[in-house]
Design a binder for these strands. Structure first.
Ligand SMILES: [Zn+2]
Ligand SMILES: [Zn+2]
Ligand SMILES: [Zn+2]
Ligand SMILES: [Zn+2]
Lengths: 612, 612
DNA sequence: TGCGGTTCAATCTGTTCA
DNA sequence: TGAACAGATTGAACCGCA
């Protein structure tokens, strides 16, 4: 029996990663994550209209007292981080600022990602029209002539294409789209052979086998999963009937852009679906537990609008709102802007609070600060289990937590100068990492899709993806600043580390490039990646897949609102592909990180944690 | 000198190391070593004829009272091994088993690893007659008849065996010996198909792919390497000629079963050969106080044969015999195969017995279990001071010592599963270490060169080299398994320890690489290193140097029998060089080990002690 | 030309038989 | 231990419609 499965690379647990990175405290990330998760998260509510601008404003505003009681003293964690940066005094003072105002968060507004049945066709036809000359097929001669012009162009395109088209499943060289995703010949065949059969493939490992040129044949289960995860559509595999018909004769040409049998896919369904932002048809694959990044799904779910390829499609209000909220929260919680002093360090609070009781918690928060969105409902709808109208997040009343972000900031700014980064005590580096991760978790908790998950699943996602998230996020934050400095840091003599940093930089650069240095884009990518339904241990994979799908669609909509159809059609897949690389990258990083001393890590961490 | 990250740790004496490692008992390594040394070691003598079957049988036989009549019921050891496979209950129950029988095993029963050509033949014929009905051939019938008697017995044995025999390559269920190692059918076929072909298999990964039931087909290169590492002999694959002959006719079953050289091994020759295997000239350098590993000396003593550079120079029968004996003993005593449950814990037995009296002791041991080699004589000749004919080992009557090996085994084996290594109580770790060291010592004592030394010198060698030995040995045992697991162990948050583990892994990897994953090679290296004439306190440095030289030569011969002149000329020096690094490494390790808690050490120890 | 399907040779593996 | 065999997969090449 040739059951060739793949060689499985052990995936590091978050614990391991953390311990690697920071060696000590972080090692209990799981625990901390857990504890973090159990802590209430402040609900952020954004009024729609007020949205962006408002948010922006609030962003720079010092959170200061906000919240109620948090006049509390600076929290320890923060202090630590601060200390890192500014060795001396200034920092301390900053530290004293109350971290209180955490945030907001919306609940469910969902932009609807258009996916209508027509999309695919749309996509294709658009594509066709764009690239290939629709010249009549009848007169070849004419065509020749006419084509002449476009010929070269086309050729070039094609060339360009083929040369840098890589299989979304295994990374091998790809020819073009197959079943909805850019894949190589082998994955195409593989998918056709297996997607439909119901034989339950079983992964002999952890269901997270890496799939690449070498390993693809190791684990059919994961390979297939990956296929679905990139949204390959098994529905596109011609069934017997279709085949028969096909062979016999091709009648009404109208129907069949897709090889599907006429009656097959009822694209009309999609419409309604899209309304729901989660069309069953498209969702299916995700339910299977795949991760949402799919060009394929993308292609399929292309925009329903039959807009001209160059017209931008404005975001729906809902989408816009969601995006701004997310970004706002992200900026508030995670980003430590070097300049703006208004720091938001939602780090955990030692507060004794509680939990699951959302509504109430929400109330606790000063209405003025709460940010909520009308669109929430729809989202909630998606998750009927949830009580609509309110965020299902734990509310964080915050505790005395202070953000040392300030310090960080200070130091960073001050550090900006030529002055070589002051030596930081290893322990501090650790603290910084810990602190940052906490913030990141807080941010993630602000996402309803995340907070609605069971604690278990939340932990699973974090364990599995925190590092990747950090990596991606670092791109989202300091698009350009990292590279040089980080790399040049005279501190690291450690070869491995240097390589890592270089690789990191390379990745960041690549991602930023593909994302055109758009922070929103990178942030969305980060989220899409966060919600990887294949993470080990997940239970509600479906929910995760849904979340991923949601952000995926959001990203598409966002892109489409900013770039032309043409641009998006190349940009989106590239993003997905790039994003995919982070997986192996992260894994590798954590491995390499192993044994690196905290001190050596500092520069990289500064970068990853966006501390300057 | 590894001056890695930071802090220097005071240098520890072996006692200290031990105490650190194990904290208590081990600390008196010197003492214990001494005591161990003074204890008689069971002489293992194997009659050639009785060989395989017998041995196999004895192998599985409960050591229990050992001695003579082993009409004993199922032995515990077996149970243990079985338990490995079945995680749950069995294990626990096993644990509850009285510790008494633990040690059982060893003592003299020698499973025979198909070493001698005769054995192989034996095996074959037996197998044939037993399992497959040699319907046709005339001789077969005769055989049948003859065999009749032993048939049933054999069958039973085999069965018993089969149940707890696991492939040394992939851990799958094994049938018995194939090409010199216990392997499953598939690995057998795999080996036959690939071992001889010179197509250069290339590992797509890191050359340390884990090989198990699921992963074995992932990397042929590593699988093959693993095969070699467990000493599978490609020479045993019938070559064309042999095949032809074989096909033509099966006459005297005696002659050609093995591809081995016609006359097979003339054991009688061994004497003289081994006597020569120690040319005075070569010894010289060592006397000067050099340690045996030096390229220089090597180059000088190159093989006198003026063979063509690409021709392999078969080992002399003597050398082959010695090597197999050594390896066999090593495997039996020291190696705790993660898969093979049949555990060999030659640890000391609680018996009260006695001592220095060798001859007598020997008698005490069930002849069937004792393995001895004709070759010993010659060796003895080298050390005329010793009474020839008998092994100069102390016989081990065992003290009240119990080995917790059992526990160890259990936990280890059960650990195999995905289950994260179960936490082992620190004390157990200590015990494991102690136990392991004891076993190692037992093994070392089985080397005439060692046991012939004065007690003082023996202790000196052990004190000076036990750690290094452990390190090297870990490479010899689990070529590939250590790295990942050990490193990933979430347990160790201790930075230093991690560095150590990493370094350890690095070293092991390097050594294995240089040694091409050949266990015999690494084992010989270990021995060469053990006999370092420069150890502090040594008196008979000359003898030690001789021993080193001997193994050095043996290594060279061995290499030359396996690789081309060209290969060896680069390989050997590399081995020596690599080996040399272990010194500083070990030193460093002991320094670092300082202060590490036993619990933290567990993973490293598991690795070093090859407990899974 | 893109992207469905189809075919088929080539590998390997592992079991069974001799 | 070898030989033979039956499978299992894979992936490249190709076919054909729109
Ligand atoms: Zn592919
Ligand atoms: Zn898998
Ligand atoms: Zn095997
Ligand atoms: Zn390999």
């Amino acid at each position: 029996m040739y059951n060739g499965p793949g060689r499985k690379r052990p995936r590091l647990s978050i614990d391991q990663i953390c311990s690697n990175v920071a060696s000590s405290q972080l090692s209990q990330l799981e625990d901390s994550a857990d504890s973090l998760l159990s802590r209430p998260l402040p609900v952020m509510i954004t009024s729609f209209t007020s949205s962006s601008v408002t948010t922006a404003a609030s962003f720079s505003v010092p959170p200061a007292t906000h919240i109620p009681s948090t006049s509390e003293p600076p929290n320890e964690a923060l202090n630590l981080s601060i200390s890192n940066r500014s060795p001396s005094t200034s920092t301390t003072s900053l530290l004293h600022q109350p971290v209180a105002h955490q945030k907001v968060l919306q609940r469910g507004s969902w932009p609807q990602a258009a996916l209508s049945p027509t999309k695919l066709q749309d996509y294709r036809s658009r594509r066709d029209s764009a690239d290939s000359d629709p010249v009549g097929s009848t007169s070849a001669k004419l065509e020749d002539n006419i084509d002449e012009a476009g010929k070269e162009r086309r050729r070039r395109q094609k060339l360009a294409n083929k040369d840098n088209l890589f299989c979304q499943v295994c990374g091998d060289k790809a020819n073009g789209y197959n079943f909805g995703a850019i894949t190589c010949e082998s994955c195409k065949a593989f998918f056709r052979r297996n997607a439909q059969k119901n034989k339950d493939l079983k992964c002999n490992f952890e269901n997270n086998c890496k799939i690449d040129h070498f390993t693809r044949k190791f684990c059919t289960a994961c390979r297939l999963a990956k296929c679905f995860s990139v949204s390959m559509k098994k529905e596109w595999i011609l069934d017997e009937d279709a085949l028969k018909k096909r062979k016999k004769l091709i009648r009404r040409p109208g129907n069949d852009k897709t090889p599907e049998t006429p009656g097959d896919i009822d694209y009309s369904r999609l419409a309604s679906v899209s309304a729901m932002s989660f069309p069953g048809a498209v969702v299916a694959p995700h339910l299977i537990g795949l991760h949402p990044l799919d060009p394929a799904h993308w292609a399929a779910s292309a925009w329903s609008h039959s807009q001209s390829p160059d017209e931008l499609i404005p975001l729906t209000d809902a989408d816009r709102a969601v995006i701004s909220t997310v970004m706002e929260n992200h900026d508030m919680i995670v980003t430590v802007s070097p300049n703006s002093s208004a720091v938001t360090t939602p780090t955990l609070t030692p507060s004794t609070s509680l939990p699951q009781d959302l509504q109430e918690t929400v109330d606790v928060i000063p209405p003025s600060k709460i940010k909520t969105e009308p669109e929430l409902e729809p989202y909630v709808v998606v998750h009927p289990e949830e009580p609509p109208g309110e965020v299902n997040l734990d509310n964080d009343t915050e505790s005395g937590k202070e953000s040392n972000t300030e310090d960080t900031e200070n130091s960073s700014t001050s550090t900006q100068q030529a002055v070589p980064t002051p030596s930081i005590h290893p322990d501090e580096v650790i603290n910084m990492a810990e602190d940052f991760i906490k913030r990141l978790i807080t941010f993630v908790k602000s996402l309803p899709e995340f907070s609605l998950l069971s604690r278990n699943d939340q932990v699973c996602l974090l364990k599995g993806g925190i590092l990747e998230t950090l990596v991606i996020r670092s791109a989202a934050v300091q698009s350009d600043s990292c590279s040089e400095e980080t790399i040049d840091s005279p501190k690291s003599n450690n070869k491995l580390l240097k390589d890592m940093i270089r690789q990191h930089t390379k990745f960041i650069t690549k991602l930023n490039q593909v994302a055109k240095w758009d922070k929103t884009t990178t942030t969305l990518c980060m989220l899409i990646n966060l919600f990887s339904p294949l993470r080990e241990g997940l239970i509600a994979r479906e929910s995760v897949a849904n979340a991923a799908a949601r952000y995926d669609l959001l990203l598409q909509s966002y892109l489409r609102s900013k770039y032309s159809s043409r641009e998006v059609s190349s940009m989106y897949p590239e993003l997905i592909a790039t994003l995919d690389t982070v997986k192996s990258y992260g894994e590798q990083s954590s491995k390499q990180m192993y044994g690196v001393t905290p001190a050596e890590l500092e520069p990289l961490m500064r970068d990853m944690f966006s501390m300057k």
